[in-house]
Design a protein around this nucleic acid. Sequence first.
DNA 1: TCACTTCCTGACCGATCGGCCAGCTTCTGA
DNA 2: TCAGAAGCTGGCCGATCGGTCAGGAAGTGA
Lengths: 180, 180
Amino acid sequence: MARTRTRDEILAVAAELFYRAGFKGTSLQDIAAEVGCSKATLLYHFDSKEAILAALLAPAARELAELDEQLAGLQGEAARAAAIDGFVDLVLRYRREAGLIYHGSLDVLLTPAFDGVQPMIENLCSAFAARSTDPGEQIAAEVLLAGICSVAIDRPDDVTLRSALIAVAKRALLTPRSKD
Amino acid sequence: MARTRTRDEILAVAAELFYRAGFKGTSLQDIAAEVGCSKATLLYHFDSKEAILAALLAPAARELAELDEQLAGLQGEAARAAAIDGFVDLVLRYRREAGLIYHGSLDVLLTPAFDGVQPMIENLCSAFAARSTDPGEQIAAEVLLAGICSVAIDRPDDVTLRSALIAVAKRALLTPRSKD
DNA sequence: TCACTTCCTGACCGATCGGCCAGCTTCTGA
DNA sequence: TCAGAAGCTGGCCGATCGGTCAGGAAGTGA
């Protein structure tokens, strides 16, 4: 049973700073100053700066893995619809983490904390594209994935944002293309 | 008349490294090593690391300003159509720079190099939304802007990519909404 | 009370960072 | 030919970085 809330505060502050200033652009001292403790305190609670990042991402990655599992058995439009709903909800629950993925530099993606995430994002993309191999559909899926992550951060109104995100995704991805 | 191509090489290498590793994650020594010169050579050609970033962004920012001007007199669907075409073409011409905007950390946006860019992006967003103040339309516009920037980098095939980006943007943004 | 655990910290470390500077080399045009 | 400009560099600087460590304070339960 933790006796203090310092660990949680570190994570909350780090999430904000990593998002704003980037992982590399945020120093341990930055985090410590914001929390109101020493740098050594951060390193008492976490092994390293990357361990902070990993701990930050763990809950979101866990839920992404669950979504990944749900989608694994689905094909075509069923996969797409489930992916859109699931992903939008996930992004709304983990706004900073999602922003880190798409607003963070690519070097963050190379850290061990992201090891399992990349394949799941690719699976998600495949589901967004209804398992199509058509380049146009794949590109559309990627646009929507990236776009949803990018705009989720700054809008406080979950209800409007959620319905708008789902609506735009469906318009972009669900429009009948049987005439192509 | 420049006697060497060193300055251009610095810019090309910096564009790639800033994109991959972020501005803060790329050191002057990283750039110098890749170019094959000394760090001091970089600083002979550019006043500072940020001056490199500014020089990098200048051409893209110039063209963005031109697009901004073209769009200024347009309303509604005309604004939207012109914005989509213009922006997609701009992004395809400046893939790394566009990636820097959306794949870079927010602290890059706070540098003087980006001073004039932010308002233009907002204008572009307004044009994508056909000047609508409806939150759903604004959100859709932002999703598409971010998404287009995010996927432009890694696809070599301009023709397929261009038509796909324009198509997804129009589907997402142009679908009749008179039934709402 | 006291041994142990948890929590925290100042001081320190070696490495890296952006940038400066004196000086050398190469090129150019009068 | 030569003065000046352009181009480049090794060595250096102060600042910052992630991380280490010995030690102190607070809490806990026997």
